[in-house]
Structure formats: C-alpha cells, structure tokens
Nucleic acid binder design. Structure first.
Ligand SMILES: [Mn+2]
Ligand SMILES: [Mn+2]
Ligand SMILES: [Mn+2]
Ligand SMILES: [Mn+2]
Lengths: 142, 142
DNA sequence: TTTTAAAGTTAGTCAAGGCTAAATTGATTT
DNA sequence: AAATCAATTTAGCCTTGACTAACTTTAAAA
C-alpha cells in the first residue's frame, strides 16, 4: 500500500504539540536565568527573596526551582548565599533576553500598547522559532 | 513614607508572571476543546483514540484529561463512547479556533513560512491578549 | 553582645500532565 | 456464537511547579 498521505492527509498535528510541550518544559528555566541575569546586572547579586518578589511566588518555590536549575547546570548556589549563573546559564540568559527584547519591540512596533506588550511578550517569547524571530526583527526595524 | 514608585520603580513583574501562569493553566483545556470540535466537524465524532493520535500522547493521558474537562464542565462523556462538547465547551472551542486562525493568518501575512507558522501559532495563541489579537487582525488584512 | 528581624531552608501536601502495564469492554471476523 | 482485535479504562508511577508551616541561619538593632 505505502504512502496514504495524498489520499488521507495525515494529521501530523502530533509534531506540533510535541514541540509545544517541549517549549513548556523550558519556560520556567528560561524566565529564571533571564531574571537572575537582570538582578545581577541591576542589583549586583541575585537573592532568592528578590526572585520570589519578582515572580510573585513563595520563597519555597524559588528554592525548589533553583535546586532544579543547579541540577541542570544553569546556576550555582550555596546555602544562604546568592545565586550565580554558570557559563551555560549565562549563555541561555543572554539568548532569552535578546529574544524577549525582539518580541517586545516587535509588538510595540505594530501598534500594541507597551503595557499590553509587556504581558504578552512574556508568554509569546517561549513559542517563537528562530525563523519567526528573524521576521519579527525585520518587521520591527521598518 | 508612602509611594516609592517614582524613585525606585517597583518591579511589578509579578503581575506579568501571574498572568502567564494563568494562561498555562488554560492551555491544555483550550487545545482539547478546539481539537474535539475539529474532530466532530471532520469525522462526525470525537473518539479518544483520535485525540491521542493528534496530540501524540497515550490513551491514558487523554482519559485523564477528558475527566478533568468533564469535571470543569467543558465536555460530557460516557464509558467507551465518544466525547461531546457542552455549551460551555462549544463556546470556548469557537473562541479558540477563531483566535488560532487569526494568529496563524497574521504570522503568514508578515512573511513566515506556513509550516513554521503552524508550529509557532499553536503556542502563541494562548498568550495573545484581546488587544493584541485585534492588532494582528488589522495588520493581516492590509 | 544579646536580641530581633529578615532571609533561606526543609518537610509535607496538592494538582496537572505525562508515562507504562494490565484489565475490561465493544466491535468485527470467522 | 466464539474468538479476536481495537478501544477504553484503571492502577500506579513520575516530574514540575505551586503552596503552608515550621525551623535555621545570617544580618541588623538595641
Ligand atoms: Mn522573559
Ligand atoms: Mn517568559
Ligand atoms: Mn489551537
Ligand atoms: Mn495551542
């Protein structure tokens, strides 16, 4: 028999959703490394109390997440001390900050209110492919 | 003392992330009702085997999710029978399908490859505010 | 230097959303 | 009518990401 794609177009939605689940698995990590980078830049160090405040979660939640990030090699931390990005964390943070900036600027450039753009960009950034990002960049600078 | 917003701009990022977490809590529900609607339209009924295939998850996962959707009033189902949308489910499905369409068309309209647009739209749709959606619509039809 | 307050940690709980393996039910063939 | 196969359900497990409450450590005030 073979390829039935022509007659019965295979609904290969599955790939699309697999990628979506992948993106979700990376979201919290991406937002954390970006925020840790911001805190180091703005305040000289990243304390968990500041992360908790900015994310609007409890200190316990931050603690859990930092342990996971450490396990995955994105940060280092010692008890009761502040948090540092590893090389790997730094690299990811940089990429995410840049991507976030492009998405935000794009939204504003097409006429979305900056306040709204801030909200939407925080979610959209994690679902934008490289290709789309390049188009956003180009559109924004016209 | 009072309002220190002017001197030390309060990082009210917390609101942004709260909304992001909210969106995530709704994502699976949104994709399910939309897909159930699609299946009913295309195949006459929504069976869990079809949902499992299209989402690329196991039958057990579909079962869990359908129970949750039922608990939350979006679908009805009877053992070993197909799945139906409630009024509430129908309404949400319609809204999501429309939103999905707008996001997809917008991406294509600014020059993104349809295949890529399909991937990205599946994630982006859940993070687009009403305001942004209106702008997408307007931009796409120019 | 002691006391107190803030920050961080630990323990235990929960829901969502995945999985596998095994049991059950319904539909199709023989 | 039985046997078989496909679909569905159930049971049990796991990780993530959230919470509260209680405890410990560090830093700041008295
Ligand atoms: Mn971000
Ligand atoms: Mn984000
Ligand atoms: Mn969709
Ligand atoms: Mn989607």
């Amino acid at each position: 028999m073979g390829d039935d794609t022509a007659v019965n177009p295979r609904h290969n939605k599955a790939e699309v959703f697999a990628r979506l689940r992948d993106a979700h698995a990376r979201e919290v990590t991406e937002d954390y490394v970006e925020m840790i980078g911001d805190l180091i830049a703005e305040e000289g160090e990243a304390r968990s109390v500041a992360l908790a405040e900015r994310f609007g979660v409890t200190a316990a939640t931050v603690n859990n997440t930092i342990k996971r990030l450490e396990r995955d090699g994105f940060v280092t931390s010692r008890p009761y001390r502040s948090i540092f990005l590893t090389e790997k964390g730094e690299t990811l943070a940089k990429k995410c900050r840049e991507r976030h900036r492009i998405v935000y600027n794009f939204l504003v450039s097409i006429g979305i209110d900056p306040e709204i753009a801030e909200f939407d960009a925080e979610g959209i950034e994690h679902h934008v492919s490289e290709e789309t990002l390049r188009v956003f960049e180009k559109v924004a600078k016209t």
